[in-house]
Amino acid sequence: MEFPGLYNYWIAIVLMMVGFYIVIAHDNLIKKVVGLNIFQVSVFVFYISMAKVRGGTAPILEAGIETYSNPLPHVLILTAIVVAVATTALALALVVRIRNAYGTIEDDEIEGQEDDA
């Protein structure tokens, strides 16, 4: 009962750790951004699954339907997705500029160049 009942949280946690690990462990700046995305998405999943009410439907007013899912987290996550997209776009733009300036997008190589300078 316990384990399958909370599987949605487990998925969120696994995704989160995967994303977090990528951000920390990878030197490639693009991969870091991908990791960051996975990390953020895990939180979105967390929000959305939390809004689910057992037996509820989409929150559209219709005769004969008593239970709805909670619409608020959906709305929140819509905003958060916008923020995440903006962040990703900015990060990618920065990576492009970094590539132009350093000729590489590997963190360790960039650090090597910075130490030389």
Binding site: F20, V23, L29, K32, L36, F39, Q40, V43, F46, Y47, M50, P73, A80, V83, T87, L90, A91, L94, V95, R97, I98, A101, Y102, I110, E114, A117
Partner: peptide, 29 residues
């Protein structure tokens, strides 16, 4: 040019922080 890498690193750290905050808000909710 180091401004670029500084901004990038700040972005990664800052986004992690903001997402942590988001998780906290979710749990309170």
């Amino acid at each position: 040019r180091r401004a670029l890498t500084a901004a990038y690193r700040y972005l990664i750290m800052g986004t992690l922080g903001a997402t942590f905050y988001l998780i906290g808000v979710a749990m309170m909710y």
